[in-house]
Design a binder for these strands. Structure first.
Lengths: 257, 257
DNA sequence: GCGATAAAGTGACCTAGATCAGAGAGTACG
DNA sequence: CGTACTCTCTGATCTAGGTCACTTTATCGC
């Protein structure tokens, strides 16, 4: 019986202690024995198929979710029916933090590809954080990091043009892939051009044209979802970054300032 | 001796227990005796003059700050020197949450008028939250609310036009003033047109023209900083809100979706 | 109270990017 | 394995709002 808990279909270990995302996720800065306690409250759910919802806007809040593999977009629909994507989440990132305040999810979360997540029941997590001061601190840090990322992104939306936005977006994805041990120069976009446009506050056509132009200018090589970064420096300069994006840690899906 | 602690220059009580902002600020949901403990770690600082900095971008993080009276803008300067305002803060709101993650302030905070704040040394607050579970929860709720507000604002920046932004901004300020017991139809803007434009991602000229137009259309009455809301409903519809902005609690300085 | 300096308002013009329209290219599904 | 979507790309307009240039009005320091 127990052995079934150690091996998943994807070959991932089921324990936090063995998870390669440990240092991006909640367990960071927590001692081994405490990680084991954290482990015990976590439910590993079966993978979500592309398009499946992890939770929907308005759902009662009960748990946070950490992504193990795959990717998720979170978005909300405003009163007048417009959909707006808030974030794209990669492995190691925590979803649902914005639902703590009023116990209901202000946004929906949908898998962009086959995705598996760890469920962290909030009441139990909260109780555990009460006992483990480092976990409490880490929870605050994770939320603060999120706040930071949001602020960075607000800055981008408020003051950068289309080309700067897309350059920043690509670099951000690039470094986030890099931090997860994947290539930071060659990766696949799990979201559509439409999603990118929506997220960046642009029209799809503009995004499409920019992809073409970046490619013509030799900055990237793009074949539909497959992207290769050819001139990181040039992109960084375009995005308004100096240097090869520093303090980028796993600040979710936002561009660095 | 004790009586000096109860009366300040502005006539405000110095204790959380007597503060009229209690239910907007941290003490909410915490029992009386615990509020007293919270009270003990708080430093009431002397008022900041207009233009004075509470902290600067890059400063080491040591404390959170709750506004008692006045208002503060927080902003950051990006690598390429562009200044971007992240938020305008009103009494009862907490500043510095975005600095927890890497122990340094990612943005500066400057008083827009004479402003007094309560300083909450983070280490002590963190320790106290470890002891008082409700305080821990409240801290998480406050951060979550902030996250929410940021997301709402991102949505506005990504998808609404100039007129919708300004209408939303005015309504947001209006309801936040209302929640604080001030008039929600007649108030003073503590920030300049330049600040508003920067915050909303518009040009000053556009903001100025919109003020004029809103006034011509009878939606508001505006005389420089003094604003009177004449047709809340019309503004709400313009801003893309249905109904008289609900769940607006003290979600900082963001427009409702 | 007065000149200097900054904030606010206005008009004329001009571009970034939206919108409209339509053509490939992929992918899903019977 | 062909038909129907859906996604991506491209070109041709159109326009919201940015930029520039200037006036008017406050505010501040002395």
């Amino acid at each position: 019986m127990e052995s079934f808990n150690v091996i998943t279909l994807q070959g991932f270990s089921r324990a936090c202690a063995d998870c390669q995302l440990q240092d991006l996720c909640l367990p960071i800065g927590i001692c081994r024995s405490d990680v084991a306690r954290l482990d015990q409250i976590i439910n590993r759910k079966r993978p979500l198929q592309r398009g499946a919802a992890l939770f929907n806007q308005g759902d009662q809040f009960g748990a946070l979710y950490a992504i193990r593999s795959g990717s998720i977009k979170s978005f909300s629909i405003s009163d007048d029916g417009r959909e707006q994507i808030n974030a794209f989440h990669l492995p190691g990132e925590i979803l649902g933090l914005d639902a703590i305040s009023d116990s209901s999810h202000p946004s929906s979360a949908v898998a962009l590809e086959t995705t598996s997540v760890c469920e962290l029941p909030f009441e139990r997590l909260h109780a555990l954080a009460h006992e483990i001061k480092d976990l409490q601190h880490q929870l605050l840090r994770v939320m603060s990091r999120e706040l930071n990322a949001d602020e960075r992104f607000m800055r981008i939306l408020a003051s950068r043009n289309a080309e700067e936005r897309l350059a920043g977006f690509l670099l951000n994805l690039s470094s986030r892939h890099g931090m997860r041990g994947y290539s930071s120069t060659e990766f696949n976009l799990s979201m559509s051009r439409h999603d990118i446009a929506n997220y960046l506050g642009l029209a799809v056509e503009t995004v499409s044209r920019l992809f073409t132009r970046f490619q013509q200018d030799g900055l990237i090589e793009a074949q539909r979802k497959a992207v290769k970064i050819l001139q990181r420096e040039a992109l960084a300069e375009m995005a308004g970054n100096t240097g090869p994006d520093p303090n980028q840690d796993d600040s979710r899906n936002r561009e660095s300032s």
